[in-house]
Computed example of a mutant assay.
Amino acid sequence: MLTEKSKKLRSLINCSIFAAVTAILAQIEIPLPLIPISGQTLAVGIAATVLGSRHGAIAMFVYAAIGAIGLPVFTGFSGGPQVLVGPSGGYIFGFIAAAYFTGLVLEKTKFTIPMAFIANIVGMVVTLIFGTIQLKIVMDLNWNAAIAAGVYPFIAVGLIKAFLASLIGITVRRRLLQAKLITASHKEVA
Rank of each mutant, 00 (worst) to 15 (best):
M1T: 13
K8P: 05
N14C: 14
N14V: 03
N14A: 14
S16Y: 04
F18T: 01
A19Q: 05
A19W: 00
A20R: 03
T22F: 05
I24C: 08
L25I: 09
I28Q: 06
P31H: 11
I35M: 00
A43P: 05
A43Q: 06
T49E: 10
L51R: 00
S53I: 07
R54F: 06
A57L: 11
I58W: 06
V62G: 02
V62M: 11
A65C: 13
A65H: 06
I66F: 15
I69Q: 11
G70T: 10
G70H: 11
G76L: 02
G79M: 04
G80P: 08
G80W: 04
V83K: 03
V85F: 14
G86D: 11
G89M: 00
G90Y: 04
Y91D: 06
F93H: 04
F93N: 00
F95A: 01
A97L: 12
A98M: 07
F101T: 07
G103A: 08
I113Q: 10
M115Y: 13
F117K: 02
G123E: 01
V125A: 13
L128Q: 06
L135S: 04
L135F: 08
A145F: 09
A146P: 11
I147D: 10
G150E: 01
P153T: 02
I155T: 07
V157S: 11
L159W: 01
A162P: 00
F163K: 00
L164D: 00
A165S: 15
V172I: 14
R174H: 15
R175K: 14
Q178P: 07
A179M: 15
K180M: 12
I182T: 07
I182E: 07
A184T: 06
E188K: 09
V189D: 11
